[in-house]
Each structure stands twice: as C-alpha cells, then as structure tokens.
Amino acid sequence: MSRTIVVTGTDTDIGKTVFAAALTRALGAFYWKPVQAGIDEGGDIVAVAALGVPASHILPEAYRLATPCSPHRAAELDGIVIDVDRLVPPAIDGSLVIEGAGGVLVPVTPGLLFADLFARWRHPVVLVARTALGTINHSLLSIEALRARGVPILGVAFVGDAVEDSEVTIARLGDVRRLGRLPLLDRLTPDSLAAAFTNHFRIEDFA
C-alpha cells in the first residue's frame, strides 16, 4: 500500500534525517525535503543518499536556502519569498517520506509554522524525539501543538540510548504510539542503519 508519512522532530539535530533515511529505505519510498536551509555540505538530500536512499528516489527540494537557520529567516537572507503553494507533496507512484526542518513550530514563512503546513497536508506524522534529558517536555509540547491543529500523529520514534521511563511517560501522557527507538550507532553506514531499523521498529506500524 502506498502512503505518505511526514517526519518531524522536537528540535533540530536530533537524528530526524537519519531516521527519515531509514524509514524511506524500509518502505522503498521516495524522499522529499520541501525546504532545505543550509547547503554548505549539500543538505539533507546528500545525507540520505549517503545512508542508502537511491538517487532516483530523492526528489528535489522546493527551496534550497543558503543559511542554516529557520526557513523564514534563511529565505529573507537570500532575498526569496517562500510561496506556500509550492509546498505541496508531489504526486508520485509509490510511498513518500517528507522531512520537515527543525521542530514542529519552526516558521516556514513569517506567518506559517511547519505544524500549520502539516495540518494542510493531513498526512500522518512521525515525531522524532531524543531520549536525553528534557525530552518529556519537548515531546509533549510538540504533541500538543500538532494535536491542536488536527494533525494526525502516527507515533513517536526515539533516537538515543534507552531511557525506559521517559519513553513510556511520553507515550502515556501524550496518548501516542511508541514506535521504537533508533540507537546511537558507533559506525553509521547504510547497512548498520538498515539493521538497526529492522531490529528496533516494526515496518507494519508504518506501512
């Protein structure tokens, strides 16, 4: 069955792109990052390619912005006005994984947050969260922000060392499915990532 899944996070640099790459490969899906802010190292499409997503399954961004900061500010610095009508999930033959930028309430434009964009799309969202200190607060706030806008939440995917109490507490208080946890890998390669995803997640929870 083909479907579209949005991958968002509780913050930036928490492993969202690594998880999105693993999910894209596991589903045999296409990958799309609608707005890339920060392109010194090529952006997230380079990262997901390095983690085994075929180039033929990586779709071009709607916007590539130079500065690694919130898209609304990065666009301003580049002298670009982001047209929200361009941020529509592409029609493709197969499943699609869409990765947001930063956290749920990061501004895409001065008047539109990523959570607002997800509400327009109406596709199920996977919230990627750290297991480190502070994750309960960040995760529950993100869940509340999504739910307030009617965004369907598929569940929470954790990244990091196991912290059982935090993971259980977020799932219970947030009333969300605990999808699994991607451990920190000593060597991050396409093979090690695929094995970790297979060992820690059930593909039927996504398919």
Rank of each mutant, 00 (worst) to 15 (best):
A129K: 00
A148E: 14
L65F: 08
V126A: 06
R130P: 04
P68L: 08
H123P: 00
Y63F: 15
L127M: 01
D116V: 13
V88E: 12
V106P: 07
R122W: 00
A101P: 05
W121S: 04
A62R: 12
R120E: 15
E61R: 08
P60E: 01
R147Y: 08
D85I: 00
S95F: 02
S142P: 06
A129I: 02
L87E: 06
F118T: 08
V108T: 07
V106K: 01
L154I: 05
S95Y: 02
T135E: 06
Y63T: 13
P71G: 13
E61Y: 03
I98N: 03
L140T: 08
R86G: 11
R130C: 09
V104D: 05
L59R: 04
G100Q: 09
S95H: 01
G111V: 14
S70L: 02
G134Y: 02
P152W: 09
H123I: 13
V126P: 03
E144K: 13
N137E: 06
T135Q: 06
V104A: 05
D116A: 12
L146Y: 01
P90V: 01
R64V: 15
W121P: 13
G134A: 10
G103H: 07
L133V: 15
L112Q: 13
A132E: 14
S139R: 03
R122F: 00
A132M: 08
V104W: 14
L140I: 13
I153N: 05
L154P: 03
R122E: 14
